[in-house]
Design a binder for these strands. Structure first.
Lengths: 152, 152
DNA sequence: CACAATTTAATTGCATGCAATTTATGCCGT
DNA sequence: ACGGCATAAATTGCATGCAATTAAATTGTG
């Protein structure tokens, strides 16, 4: 690549990611507004619908978020009566996050969102799947870098 | 795809994007710390190094950011003496952003960052390029959706 | 020319993200 | 048992992002 071209915005993967992630998040807003939740709250609930009753720590490693982001977010979800937070009896350092009945019920309404968002785009499913898998691979590689090759 | 699988975190492109973008941004932090700037400030400077003397509006459409984000960010860069902000004489609604000598000089030090970050990952350049182009395509498609097919 | 509609930044309010620190709890070796 | 290290959340401080509103300037129209 010629001198300087590497610094160009459109040649940088990091900017493509940064811009794309935000644009895609914006697509979700109208659907999430119907449910009264934000995007981060949505992915947190996705994780909980998949596996309930997990410590904040585990939720964080699943979502790549730390307690600095999760604690206030989970308090908000608790305020909306979608989850409960309770200290782990076995290990008082941990806080276990559990869906309430309302939180579980919300899954039904959220069920149709991915399909509705997908229909808005004109991208073939095959490409979506390929892109998603490449991103997962990159995320894993990068995460390993910043956390040390020994980490899971 | 079977019932429910669509809601799983790891099947969702949006989450792959959300997680990957943040993890990649974290890779840049140590290098940007050397320059004393944040990631968003970095991409803003990238845009300016490529094309200087542009209105806030144009910078925003390039970066997919609005004045609510850019105004405070540009004031910070101005406080660091990396840019100047001045009203457009021809159209007093616009504010023109211009690099200072210091801002231009910073480009030299930033020059090596993409290469250094790239070397940290073990991903072949070919894959990086392909991923970047797919992301650009998706970003364009999604942006068109949210802004109306008539928009540029 | 007058005036309504548009356009551009700035401002406001709210919700993240994340580094760094603090607090509480568990663990481990002696 | 006990002192020191490790771990998990919570807290603090700062920098985004973005929707919604406001203020100023420009443009299009009759």
């Amino acid at each position: 690549m010629e001198q300087g071209a590497q610094l160009e915005l459109d040649n940088q993967l990091c900017f493509a990611l940064y811009a794309c992630a935000r644009e895609v998040m914006k697509l979700y807003r109208p659907y999430l507004d119907e449910l009264g939740i934000t995007y981060t709250q949505y992915v947190t609930l996705l994780a909980l619908w998949e596996k309930d009753g997990v410590p904040v720590k585990e939720l964080g490693s699943r979502l790549y978020l730390d307690s600095g982001t999760l604690t206030p977010l989970l308090k908000k979800l608790e305020g909306m009566a979608l989850i409960r937070r309770e200290r782990d009896r076995g290990d008082e350092r941990s806080v276990i996050v559990r869906l309430t009945e309302q939180g579980r019920e919300l899954k039904t309404r959220a069920m149709t969102i991915p399909e509705r968002v997908y229909c808005q785009t004109s991208i073939p499913e095959e490409e979506i799947v390929q892109l998603r898998d490449q991103l997962r691979k990159l995320t894993a590689a990068v995460h390993e870098q910043s956390c040390g090759p020994a980490s899971s």
